[in-house]
């Protein structure tokens, strides 16, 4: 595809497609070393070793999940104590008001409940879900990167981005199938909003 086709069209970025996981890993390392920050890899399944190749930091989800679990367990245990001892004490079967061993099974369940709800919220937040306006969604390349191929997207938001520069970098990294990624054009208002993100090559 020639440059001329895209002269008057705003770009959201450029995508380079690969067929082999090894080629992807190699190219991802190159892009990382070139100093890009606004870029991503798109793959049909998790490719092992790509996190390191992209230089991603480990996900904070486990520690958040752990804290939420202990928080939930503590809250649940406190709530059971408060309802049985403070707010409305009822003697049942002659058992002590604060019969803590009986509170242990629900405390465990509260741990799991809070940890799981938080993990799910983390998936939505960190994976940037609930966003239906990625420029990739309507591009033909989306079909390829959810099937068998791998894509490296250099986003226009990056200060280094230009269509010629992106082509050069991806080609240098061993990519033979480089395509421009037009901004999202599904409806008038949405396209207008995203025009600002795009740059003109």
């Amino acid at each position: 595809m020639s440059d001329a086709t895209y002269q008057n069209e705003a770009l959201a970025g450029a995508i380079g497609l690969f067929d082999e996981p090894d080629a992807l890993l190699h190219a991802a390392g190159k892009v990382r070393d070139a100093g890009y920050t606004e870029w991503d890899c798109h793959t049909p399944y998790p490719v092992h070793g790509l996190d390191q190749a992209m230089g991603l930091r480990p996900s904070p989800i486990p520690i958040i999940c752990l804290l939420a679990g202990f928080g939930g367990a503590g809250l649940g245990f406190f709530f059971m104590w408060w309802t049985s001892v403070v707010d409305y004490p009822v003697l049942i079967g002659g058992k002590p008001l604060f019969s803590w061993p009986a509170f242990i099974p629900p405390t465990f369940e509260f741990f799991v409940l809070f940890a799981a709800l938080t993990t799910f919220a983390c998936v939505l937040f960190f994976c940037r879900l609930f966003r239906w306006h990625s420029p990739l969604h309507d591009a033909d390349v989306m079909r390829e990167v959810t099937t068998t191929r791998f894509g490296i997207v250099l986003k226009a938001e990056d200060a280094r981005f230009s269509w010629t520069e992106a082509q050069r970098l991806l080609a240098e990294a061993g990519c033979t199938d480089i395509r421009p990624l037009p901004v999202w054009q599904a409806s008038g208002s949405a396209a207008g909003e995203h025009d600002q993100e795009g740059v003109r090559p």
Partner: peptide, 14 residues
Amino acid sequence: LGWTGSNRAWSHYE
């Protein structure tokens, strides 16, 4: 929910 197969998402997802 707008999944694009992004590896930044996969990393958290896994």
